[in-house]
């Protein structure tokens, strides 16, 4: 009997390869795949998805006990925190300059520079720097971060339509990558990429953040928007073919299911186990829909997901 003829799609496009790090810092390339996630029978996946672990510039006020106890005293210093993250298996440090937020301390360029320098000093993996997500404030602290990390190809975010000119200019000047964030909508994601390219940022210096919805809180929208972006990119449209980042850690640990230990239905199950499952299930689902970088928080999740990625990308 004739063997089953496998249905292989002839994609004409390829996900762009984006390099992070370098100039003394460990470098890595993300993206470059020529097929939908992990379909080995169809295309290549030259660079496996990577795990970024979040570090903040000040001790977090709103982290649940499960996380606080996992990181311990390291939370007091961004450098120590980054080292701890590295020991858990972080491949990238995702530094959030949270205290620059007007409501969280409203720190400025000087403090931002300090925090970034500490992290760059402490670890040699690539670093992503995220502002407080208030566009004007982002401009201030990210420009500062950019100078500190000049040449080390950081990723700076979040770049939105409002501040895309400033972030792009900074990235061009200092050789960084922009994290282009849009609200769960394929066209808006594409449009921001086009605008960034139009102001001169190279297409291989953009990572998309399509906005993450965690399990139970809009995961399906993110899932589908990412699948569609991937398909569009593989079909040869250059504009949605940038690698994608999903902020799984923040989104899944924000939810009641990961934080509340009492006063919820018994059917929700053991709180510690549930919180970890919430993070890993969000993470695996978004990896399957095309994430190239996922942020994670809990050491156990990091470990499991690292194994999963290895399994999904092993040769053969």
């Amino acid at each position: 009997m004739a063997p089953v003829e496998l249905p292989v799609e002839k994609w004409t496009g390829k996900i762009k390869e984006v390099k992070l790090g370098g100039n003394g810092r460990k470098s890595m390339v993300i993206g470059g795949e020529t097929t939908l996630p992990f379909l080995k029978f169809e295309g290549v996946l030259p660079n496996k998805p990577v795990i970024a672990v979040e570090v903040q510039d000040a001790p977090p006020k709103d982290w649940p006990q499960a996380l606080v106890s996992a990181y311990g005293d390291a939370l007091k210093d961004p450098g120590e925190w980054a080292k701890k993250a590295l020991s858990f298996g972080a491949e990238i440090i995702y530094l959030r300059l949270k205290s620059a937020h007007p409501e969280e301390g409203n720190t400025g360029a000087a403090e931002a520079k300090k925090a970034v320098a500490k992290v760059l000093e402490a670890v040699d993996v690539p670093v992503i720097v995220i502002g407080p997500e208030v566009p004007e404030k982002d401009n201030e602290v990210l420009v500062a971060a950019s100078e500190v990390g000049k040449g080390q190809r950081l990723a700076l975010g979040n770049c939105v339509e409002k501040n895309h000119r400033t972030i792009a200019a900074t990235c061009i000047a200092d050789g960084h990558v922009a994290i282009a964030k849009t609200p769960i909508e394929i066209n808006l994601a594409k449009q921001l990429n086009i605008l960034l390219c139009d102001v001169g940022l190279a297409a291989d210096s953009i990572i998309m953040d399509p906005t993450t919805g965690s399990l139970g809180y809009g995961l399906e929208y993110t899932y589908s928007v990412m699948e569609r972006l991937r398909i569009a990119g593989l079909m040869g449209d250059g504009m949605p073919s940038m690698p994608m980042l999903c902020d799984v850690g923040e989104e899944s640990w924000r939810q009641k299911e990961s934080r509340v230990t009492t006063g919820v239905p018994e059917t929700w199950g053991d709180p510690a186990e549930r919180a970890i499952n919430w993070e890993i299930i969000t993470a695996i689902s978004l990896l399957n829909s095309g994430a190239n970088i996922i942020t994670l928080r809990h050491p156990k999740t990091i470990e499991f997901l690292k194994n999963s990625i290895a399994q999904l990308t092993q040769a053969g």
Binding site: L215, E257, G269
Partner: peptide
């Protein structure tokens, strides 16, 4: 079978 496993899977 544990609720902490089934609740997130059923939600997914």
């Amino acid at each position: 079978f544990t609720p902490a496993l089934f609740y997130p899977l059923l939600t997914l």
